[in-house]
Simulated assay, not measured.
Amino acid sequence: MSDGPSEIVMELVSVAALAENHTIGRDGELPWPSIPEDKKQYRARIADDPVILGRRTFESMLDDLPGSDQIVLSRSEQEFDVVTAHHARNVEEAIELAESLGAETAYVIGGAAIYELFQPHLDRMVLSRVPGEYDGDTYYPAWSTADWQLESETPYERFTLQEWVRTDRD
Rank of each mutant, 00 (worst) to 15 (best):
S2H: 12
S2C: 11
P5H: 15
S6V: 09
S6N: 06
V9K: 14
V9T: 15
M10Q: 02
M10L: 03
V13Y: 00
V15H: 04
E20Y: 06
T23Q: 07
T23W: 05
I24Q: 06
G28Q: 03
E29L: 15
E29H: 15
P31C: 06
W32D: 08
D38Y: 12
K39S: 09
Q41V: 14
Q41L: 13
Y42G: 10
R43E: 08
I46K: 03
A47I: 11
D48N: 12
D48Q: 13
D49S: 14
D49F: 11
V51P: 00
V51R: 00
I52C: 05
G54D: 02
R55Y: 08
T57P: 01
F58G: 00
D64Y: 12
L65T: 02
P66V: 01
G67A: 14
S68H: 05
Q70G: 14
Q70S: 15
I71E: 11
V72D: 07
V72E: 07
V72F: 08
S74L: 07
S76L: 02
E77K: 14
E77N: 14
Q78Y: 10
Q78C: 12
E79N: 05
D81E: 07
V82F: 14
V83M: 04
T84L: 02
H86F: 08
H87F: 06
A88W: 03
R89S: 13
E92F: 09
E93I: 03
E93G: 04
E93L: 05
I95Q: 00
I95K: 00
S100T: 09
L101E: 07
G102E: 10
A103N: 11
E104S: 05
A106S: 11
Y107P: 05
V108Q: 02
A112D: 01
Y115D: 06
E116V: 04
L117Q: 12
L122F: 12
D123A: 11
D123R: 09
M125Q: 13
V126C: 12
V126D: 13
R129I: 14
P131W: 08
G132W: 03
Y134N: 02
Y134T: 02
D135I: 04
G136P: 01
T138Y: 03
T138D: 05
Y139H: 08
Y139L: 04
Y140N: 10
P141C: 13
A142C: 10
W143E: 07
S144P: 10
S144W: 12
A146L: 15
D147A: 05
D147W: 03
L150I: 14
E151N: 12
S152V: 05
E153Y: 04
R158N: 11
R158H: 10
T160W: 04
T160C: 04
T160E: 04
E163G: 09
E163P: 08
V165I: 11
D168A: 11
D170P: 14
